[in-house]
Each structure stands twice: as structure tokens, then as C-alpha cells.
């Protein structure tokens, strides 16, 4: 109890320091200190706020902090998604992709399909292969995986190599936990086969990544 109130006081002090940060460097430092004080309820809203400040150093620190906090960060992230602040949205998608909470599924699907920024689409593609499904029933897992797979399959036609690269990573992540012969695994492998084919995929590094993914899936 004493420890908890000590932490809260620490968090309050650091939030004040954060609000007073005057320069870009101070903000990065203040963000790192906020993350270190392990009080999600108090700090998450401020970390989410940092994503909209157009300070990449601080945003990287905030995304890492939000990913480390995990599911506790998802509600505030979703509640504060800013459709008009492009940069903030990109960082929020990265955080949601890193956390892997299924509440982020709608946002990840939408981002991969429609976002104008390749950096957002690539984060979303990776995220669609990294959702944590353990707590769901078998039927729910099937439904969520079906949506992830459909999104990744559409991403095969993305015009940017880095997004197709991330699709390969996403497909690997989706297929690895499945038993060989599972219909979703078969579909993921078929898509990886497409990314491996020089006739259909012109970027060497994408083909190489798809090859590594298939090797791992086959070795499972």
C-alpha cells in the first residue's frame, strides 16, 4: 500500500515534469521516465498524447512503453485514435500491432487496406500475424484468424515492397502456431508461395523473406 502510493507520487511528479518539458530532448527524457515508473493508469493517457506531438524520438519511446504495458494500453489507444493527425495514427497502429490485443483488429484491418502511408500498412500487416488468440474460444479464434488472413491476402497486391515484406512476416506469424494441414495454414502457405515466385514477386528481399517463412512453417 505504501509502495503503491509512493509509485503514484512518483508518477505524479514525472507527469508534471513531462508537462513542463520545453524542448524536444526534454520531452524524450520525460517520456522515458514516465515509462519507467510502472503506473499504467496514470501514465498511459500521457504516453498516448506523446504520439501526436510530432517528436519521433519521444514517439518511439512512447510506443515501446505502450507495447510493454500491453493490454492496459489498448483502451486509451483506441479511444484516442485521431483520424486527422496522420503521424499520431501511424504510431498508434504500431503500438497496437506490437501489443497484439484482438481489440485492435478493426484498426489493423482498416490500416492495411486503406492507409496512405506504407509505414502504417507495414506495421498493420505485421500486427495481423501477431494477435494473441490464446484466451479465445476455438470458434472465435477461427473467426479472428479468418479476418487476419483475408487482410493479409489482400496485402499481397500492395504496391510497396516493404508492405509485402511485412505481409510475409504476418503470414509466418499466423501459420506457425497452427498444426500442419490446418486450412488456414494451407492458405498462408499458398500466399507465401506467391511471394516466393519470381514471376509474381519482383523484389528479391521479399522472396527471400517468404522463403524463410515457408522453411520455418515446414519445420514446425
Amino acid at each position: 500500500m505504501t509502495a503503491a502510493s509512493g509509485d503514484s507520487r512518483l508518477a505524479a511528479d514525472r507527469i508534471r515534469a513531462f508537462e513542463l518539458a520545453g524542448s524536444a530532448e526534454e520531452l524524450v527524457l520525460a517520456t522515458r521516465r514516465l515509462i519507467a515508473c510502472d503506473d499504467p493508469l496514470a501514465t498511459v493517457p500521457h504516453l498516448v498524447q506523446v504520439l501526436g506531438f510530432n517528436n519521433p524520438g519521444a514517439a518511439v519511446a512512447a510506443v515501446d512503453g505502450l507495447i510493454a504495458l500491453g493490454p492496459a494500453a489498448v483502451g486509451p489507444l483506441l479511444a484516442n485514435l485521431d483520424a486527422h493527425n496522420y503521424g499520431a495514427r501511424a504510431w498508434a497502429v504500431r503500438a497496437l500491432a506490437g501489443i497484439g490485443d484482438i481489440r485492435g483488429l478493426d484498426v489493423l484491418e482498416d490500416a492495411l487496406a486503406t492507409d496512405v502511408g506504407p509505414s502504417v500498412r507495414r506495421a498493420a500487416a505485421r500486427g495481423l500475424g501477431a494477435l494473441r488468440l490464446e484466451s479465445l474460444s476455438v470458434e472465435e479464434r477461427q473467426q479472428v484468424r479468418e479476418r487476419c488472413l483475408a487482410g493479409l491476402e489482400s496485402g499481397l497486391g500492395d504496391g510497396e515492397w516493404v508492405v509485402r515484406y511485412a505481409v510475409a512476416v504476418g503470414l509466418e506469424g499466423l501459420a506457425l502456431p497452427l498444426p500442419p494441414g490446418h486450412p488456414h495454414s494451407d492458405r498462408a502457405e499458398a500466399s507465401l508461395g506467391q511471394l516466393l515466385d519470381p514471376e509474381r514477386e519482383d523484389t528479391l528481399v521479399v522472396r527471400l523473406r517468404a522463403g524463410v517463412a515457408l522453411k520455418r512453417v515446414n519445420a514446425r
Binding site: 507495414r122 506495421a123 500487416a125 505485421r126 516493404v162 515484406y165 511485412a166 512476416v169 516466393l196 528479391l204 528481399v205 522472396r207 527471400l208 523473406r209 517468404a210 522463403g211 524463410v212
Partner: peptide
């Protein structure tokens, strides 16, 4: 990966390639 000396052509990857690919994964 693509221009490196000792880089694989086609779809075979060596362990060097794989180290670079894993570093790329971490940046997505």
C-alpha cells in the same frame, strides 16, 4: 541483403541473410 557480398541469389538464404532479415522484421 540484395547487394551484399556472399548474398544468395534466387530463394536460398544463408545464416547471414537471415540475421539481416530478422533485423528488418524488428523495424516493421
Amino acid at each position: 541483403v540484395e547487394n551484399g557480398s556472399g548474398s544468395a541469389s534466387g530463394s536460398e538464404t544463408g545464416s547471414d541473410d537471415e540475421a539481416v532479415l530478422m533485423a528488418m522484421d524488428a523495424l516493421l
